[in-house]
Design a protein around this nucleic acid. Structure first.
Lengths: 213, 213
DNA sequence: TTTTTATAAAATGTATACAAAATTTATCAT
DNA sequence: ATGATAAATTTTGTATACATTTTATAAAAA
């Protein structure tokens, strides 16, 4: 899904550069420097900066200038707490609309997740695709957009999560359990699995961050 | 809290104009027209449009142009559902930090809410101040910002809510019940009251919207 | 030395001007 | 007439230029 609009690719690029720590941490970003760095004028830079600020990638440190929002355990905990509440909620609305086609799509993604040699980035994207396919079925744009934004922010922390050796294996197991419950139309069960799935990931991540920062 | 920066007041103004239906519904907003209307160039207009879009006030209808997000029962339901999950959550974190000063502030606001002759707008703002004062104590910026944004979006629907004759009276009663539980350090009780408070408001609103739209 | 004030530099915010894209209108063929 | 194609208009996106604000620097007073 490539956009023709330069600003859209600039947005994606800068977001990735934040994830990859390509942009200075702890000091405000200078519009003109970014302008040179990315080869565009300050106008589209400003657009993207504002967008990233609104989405929580950047923070405005007091008076002036946006800086990269430093990774922080409390933010991570908040993000996962919100997800663990909101994702079971939207799953409830999705349930009745889940058909073979959607379940099939989700299963395909799970299989792709088991391919060896995936980058952490790709793994994260596929993971969200799996969840997203299910949630889209709910047909609840407001709820979905909110959850989607939370996921985007979580992607900054994904690198840490996969440090856990058996994280992926566990995660996959839970994904299949979730699909299973959904196929059996056991909503309560599915929601419980999902909430546990997210909470646990959050707890692991927060523990890791607290130990290593 | 007035900002010296024109764009900030422009942002506030446009948000209010959306609430008050001063901006065309159903048709994409034209940057140049807005530029004339508000007496600034297209640059700050674009900034504000993007911000409002990210916050859910505007939606992009397909290819081009942002238009006012029409009021809709499903969105309202989503907003209140999220709030009814997230606000008890942040209240949990606020609890331990609640001191006399904060409870006092909240009580003051409740008293202001009982003054006769308040406009619906002022009523809505005071109502959020009451909740916000409590939630700020949690010291959870990520969670707070998310909840704050949900509140802002709900403000578009406040006009409808207060149609209910005894809404205010009920709401106030629940506010005092909440404060009471908090003073007694009964967290579970407080969270239950809060969740019920929000859920009920949401249900009333959705029912009203479904009947009148 | 420390603090205050004035000046200079840098950075951001906004306006104007231009380029690219999209939408509309007009023209033509069927 | 109807549909497709092409020109014209509108609208948005971006660059440059300027104004305002903020931050840094230097000079002066305590």
């Amino acid at each position: 899904m490539i956009s023709k609009q330069p600003a859209e690719t600039l947005y994606i690029q800068m977001k990735q550069d934040i994830r990859d720590n390509k942009l200075p941490l702890g000091t405000p970003l200078k519009q003109e420097q970014l302008s040179n760095q990315y080869g565009v004028s300050r106008i589209p830079i400003r657009d993207v900066l504002q967008r990233l600020k609104n989405e929580g990638w950047l923070i405005t440190s007091g008076k002036r200038g946006a800086m990269v929002n430093p990774l922080n355990a409390t933010e991570a905990e908040d993000l996962y707490l919100m997800r663990s509440d909101l994702e079971p909620l939207i799953l409830g609305y999705a349930m009745t609309h889940l058909n073979h086609q959607i379940i099939g799509k989700a299963t395909d993604i799970l299989e792709q997740l088991e391919q060896p040699g995936l980058t952490i980035q790709t793994h994260g994207e596929l993971n969200w695709q799996f969840h997203g396919v299910l949630y889209q079925a709910a047909n609840r744009p407001t709820l979905f957009n909110n959850i989607n934004n939370l996921h985007q922010l979580c992607s900054r922390y994904i690198g840490f999560q996969n440090m856990e050796l058996n994280y992926q294996k566990n995660s996959q197991k839970e994904h299949y359990q979730l699909l299973n419950a959904l196929q059996k139309k056991q909503l309560g069960q599915a929601q419980q699995i999902l909430k546990q799935h997210i909470s646990q990931a959050g707890k692991n991540l927060v523990a890791y961050l607290n130990n290593h920062m």
